[in-house]
């Protein structure tokens, strides 16, 4: 067992040294893999960052019910009781026109605005929190509520957020697809790298086989080479995206500021980084294994 581990350690170290010692050739394929990996990774981070934020917006969709300006107290009471009796409505809060005007003055620093106006131009409003989160049912509820007597309009506050959410979903699917496609590319590129290496070491492999090397022994250095290549490519891709996030974040923050929101792109968590490195390592080894199985069979003796 100790011997087995020793052999593996030796192979792993030799493979790493080899990658680091022939910088140009391996650097090119490493960079190619890294750039390819950085693309879905950056998309993933973009989606993850905005999805959390968009999810927060849409998690509590609210419908604002604006009353006609001429609505009387009796009308308000009627709407209120109708809302209270509606099983699709979770809770209702009432914002009277006086409260709304006071709020407006306070928020915008327009003290004395009310005094200058002949009458309050703002309507009474109900803010309805529905039970459901399902977009179709929300639409139905919105229509139903706008049909109540003396209701001017029912606005679904989160409708734009819902559209954004849909777009983010789309990008998320794109990320998955790109991730899968470039994962496959990782397998194929490693397959090719290892194939070239096996062909370059044909004599050594033949002699090793002749003097008693098992297939596992011969495969081992190539698999470790692929493993390091996968891990290094993952690390470089991580570095590239981290750099991208760091440079893009000021602009993203500024953009979000325009909408009075706080939004930032995040970098990978330690767990995500480890998972990604494990995935790139395994995919690279898969490519190497396929190449080795195919090409070692062609070298005598069998």
């Amino acid at each position: 067992m100790k011997h087995f581990l020793y052999l593996h350690l030796l192979s792993a170290r030799q493979a790493l040294v080899k990658i680091l010692r022939q910088p140009f050739g391996s650097l090119l394929s490493l960079l190619m893999l890294s750039v390819a990996l950085a693309l879905p990774l950056a998309l993933y981070l973009g989606v993850e960052s905005t999805q959390a934020w968009v999810g927060k917006l849409t998690a509590t969709p609210q419908i604002s019910l604006f009353m006609e300006l001429s609505a009387e107290d009796a009308d308000l009471a009627a709407v209120k009781s109708s809302l209270a009796g509606n099983p699709k409505v979770k809770s209702v809060s009432f914002v009277s026109k006086a409260e709304a005007l006071a709020g407006l003055e306070k928020r915008n620093g327009l003290d004395g605005l009310a005094a200058d106006l002949d009458s309050n131009p703002l309507p009474d409003a109900f803010v309805v929190t529905p039970v459901t989160l399902e977009p179709g049912e929300l639409d139905m509820l919105q229509k139903e509520l706008s049909g109540l007597p003396m209701v001017e309009s029912a606005q679904f506050d989160a409708s734009w957020a819902k559209r954004l959410y849909g777009m983010v979903e789309l990008v998320r699917h794109l990320t998955l697809f790109l991730g899968a496609a470039l994962g496959l590319a990782l397998v194929l590129v490693t397959h090719n790298t290892i194939r070239m290496q096996i062909l370059a070491h044909r004599d050594e492999i033949e002699v090793s086989k002749l003097i008693g090397a098992s297939d596992n022994f011969i495969r081992r250095p190539f698999l470790y080479h692929a493993l390091w290549q996968g891990i290094l490519a993952g690390l470089i891709a991580w570095g590239l995206t981290s750099w991208l996030v760091a440079t893009a974040n000021p602009a993203v923050r500024e953009f979000a500021q325009l909408y009075n929101e706080r939004l930032e792109l995040r970098t990978l968590t330690a767990f995500e980084l480890l998972a990604m490195l494990a995935a790139t390592g395994v995919l690279a080894m898969l490519g190497a294994r396929l190449a080795a199985n195919h090409h070692l069979r062609q070298i005598e003796p069998h």
């Binding site: 086989k209 003097i211 008693g212 098992s214 022994f217």
Partner: peptide, 15 residues
Amino acid sequence: PYVRQHIGLVFQDHK
């Protein structure tokens, strides 16, 4: 291969 590990081989073309 493990059988071969107990055998020494001298090749005509040296290898």
